[in-house]
């Protein structure tokens, strides 16, 4: 589904990613862990197409197409979804308006007809149950005045409605209490399928108690310094990142 090869990325004059290679197959869940400043969020943003990053070398192929050449909206329409660490508040645009616009933009891209109002509201309501959200949230401005937990649930709701093929969750667990974490994780688990892949970017192992990854990668100093299965996350929980960072330092 996604093949990243030797990806080098700069922000202004600083090289943040120094050769990332990663293969994500259909239906797989990959966790990317690492200390602050390791480049985790940069990787998530580059894959979603945010401005301000310069890819100096390497490539990312998504379903055999050059992902990095697509504008962000095309990536979204092709099934890439980024759940933001800090979802943006948009006063004046209601949640339901955003969802309708997004759903129909994606349907249009896939040569499908627009959903009529009844079908659309039915779809959204069924997905709201997944994240335990009240219907009134639909008519509020996007994320405006939402608590941290509500914002993250709203991201998962958007993901559920848009049904991506590759979902990238950037620190979705940050700032969540245990109940919110459970709701969010249940939502993600409900969306796992053999055709849908996930990249979970996280600092803490905690999220992985709820969403069991197939693979865990440790990012440090802009490189993946270790890959393994879910047990690697537990090891990190015990030993911290220090031993791997030293390892990365020695390698470079």
């Amino acid at each position: 589904m996604l093949a990243i090869e030797s990806l080098h990325v700069r922000v202004e004059d600083k090289e943040i990613l120094k050769g990332i290679s990663l293969n994500v197959g259909a239906g797989e869940v990959h966790a990317i862990m690492g200390p602050n400043g390791s480049g985790k969020s940069t990787l998530a943003h580059v894959l979603a197409g945010r401005d301000g990053y310069t890819v100096t070398s390497g490539m990312a192929t998504y379903n055999h197409a050059n992902l990095l050449a697509m504008p962000p909206e095309e990536r979204a329409r092709e099934g890439v979804f980024l759940a933001f660490q800090y979802p943006v508040e948009i006063p004046g645009v209601s949640n339901i308006y955003l969802l309708k616009t997004a759903v129909n933009a994606i349907r249009k891209h896939r040569a499908l007809e627009e959903l009529d109002a009844m079908d659309f509201i039915g779809l959204v309501k069924s997905k709201m149950k997944l994240v335990d959200m009240d219907e009134q949230f639909l008519y509020r401005a996007v994320n405006e005045g939402f608590s941290g937990g509500e914002k993250k649930r709203n991201e998962i709701l958007q993901m559920a409605v848009l049904e991506p093929r590759l979902a990238i969750l950037d620190e979705t667990d940050s700032g969540l209490d245990i109940d919110a974490l459970r709701v969010v994780s249940d939502g993600v688990n409900a969306l796992r399928s053999k055709d849908r892949s996930f990249i979970l970017v996280t600092h803490y192992q905690r999220l992985l108690d709820y969403i069991k990854p197939d693979f865990v990668h440790v990012l440090a100093g802009g490189r993946i310094v270790k890959s393994g299965d879910a047990s690697l996350a537990l090891e990190l929980e015990d030993r911290g990142y220090g031993w791997l960072e030293q390892h990365a330092g020695a390698a470079s």
Binding site: A48, G49, R50, D51, P71, P72, E73, R75, A76, R77, F81, L82, F84, P87, V88, I90, P91, G92, V93, Y97, L98, T101, A102, A105, I106, H109, A141, Q158, L162
Partner: peptide, 27 residues
């Protein structure tokens, strides 16, 4: 940031800008 947020949901740049402009006024 808001423009990017909307684009990451499949909305093209022009529509995203227009939505945000309208929202600013509609308040």
């Amino acid at each position: 940031q808001s423009v990017f947020y909307l684009r990451s949901r499949g909305v093209d740049r022009e529509s995203a800008r227009n939505m945000l402009t309208f929202a600013f006024a509609n308040e």
